[in-house]
Amino acid sequence: MPEMTKELLNKKDIERITSRIAHEIIEKNRGTENLCLVGIQRGGVHLAKRLSEKIRAVEHFDIPVGSLDIALYRDDLGIRKEHPAVRKTDIPWDITDKKIILVDDVLFTGRSIRAAMDALMDFGRPAQIQLAVLIDRGHRELPIRADYVGKNIPTSRLESIEVQLEEDGLEDKVLLQTKQ
């Protein structure tokens, strides 16, 4: 079966989107006080770091960036044949009473975000959790929505979204793949 691949976003698009989201975060939170960024492994971590840099460029303030691995909090462990690799979780500060901006590359069913929130709760009691995503492709299975959305892309379940980032040695782009 042929596989159709379509480029949705290029390097420039991603650059513009992260800039915009950085501004939205500053605007919505009226500055950077008490803010921290937590990226979900793996794409979310890279995006969180980019957002932190953008915010620094505007506000001249370093927002702490953490990484969160959700493998141990997934709800599909008993269903999958292989358990997913456990990556590093690194949140080297107390999150209690902080405003956490959770960052992920693609928002789909919402189950990853549910797992991420559960994981965060094990680290402390944040004042607030907000969600920033590069792509929202719909098909939510849980009542979860993003506070900051790079681009809404209506998809079919048969399609998949691939986010490629320079940090992984690839060219920045977002691809839509359709399986026949």
Partner: peptide
């Protein structure tokens, strides 16, 4: 190598205040 690398993540878990994760809940 996979086991040893995965164990590194679990060692981090053991350093947290809440040392329990729900990974094998129900097992």
């Amino acid at each position: 190598e996979l086991i040893l690398n995965t164990a590194l993540s679990f060692k981090d878990v053991l350093k947290r205040d809440i040392k329990k994760v729900p990974a094998l809940r129900g097992k």
